[in-house]
């Protein structure tokens, strides 16, 4: 027999999403990105479950996906609190900032080959300060790209 249409495709898509999420969890250092990747893994699971449910023609997979959604929400709530706390302590969202579990006589692992910052810091538009109108060079004003 052949399985129901698209079941295998759904499983493959689920596997791909799961694997991508796993790679992200393992490789990315940003705590929030890590959690995004975890959610991605959950998505992969959800797709697989639905595919299996389609294969078997029952509701188990659907129900499980609903619970996955629930657990993901819980996880996000708690994990984000932890992330915020971690950020409050270290000032960064770096998973490598937490190394207390290492051997006591090992040096701290630090990034040795940090790249030179070639990307300019993101520029956000700023409002001019309120108060006395600053003296503005009118010629310069004319040359501004955006107002």
């Amino acid at each position: 027999m052949t399985p129901a249409p698209l079941v295998l495709d759904g499983l493959v898509v689920g596997a791909i999403l799961f694997s991508l999420g796993l790679v992200g969890i393992l490789a990315r250092r940003n705590l929030i990105v890590m959690f995004l990747c975890a959610e991605l893994m959950l998505q992969g699971i959800s797709v697989s479950l639905v595919a299996w449910s389609r294969h078997h023609g029952d509701w188990g997979g659907h129900v499980l996906v609903i619970f996955v959604l629930t657990v993901a929400a819980c996880e996000a709530a708690v994990a984000l609190v932890f992330v915020l706390q971690a950020f409050a302590r270290t000032g960064r969202l770096d998973s490598a900032a937490w190394q207390s579990l290492r051997e006591s006589n090992l040096p701290r692992t630090v990034d040795h080959e940090l790249p030179a910052v070639d990307v300019l810091p993101l520029k956000f538009p700023k409002l001019t300060p309120a108060g006395v109108e600053p003296s503005v060079d009118q010629d310069a004003l004319l040359e501004r790209e955006h107002v």
């Binding site: 393992l26 490789a27 250092r29 190394q99 207390s100 579990l101 290492r102 090992l106 692992t109």
Partner: peptide, 17 residues
């Protein structure tokens, strides 16, 4: 072997995987 105990949880997770 001590160098495996780097304290970086992601390495532990990688090892587990």
């Amino acid at each position: 072997v001590r160098h495996l105990q780097s304290g970086l949880v992601q390495r532990y997770a990688l090892a587990g995987v």
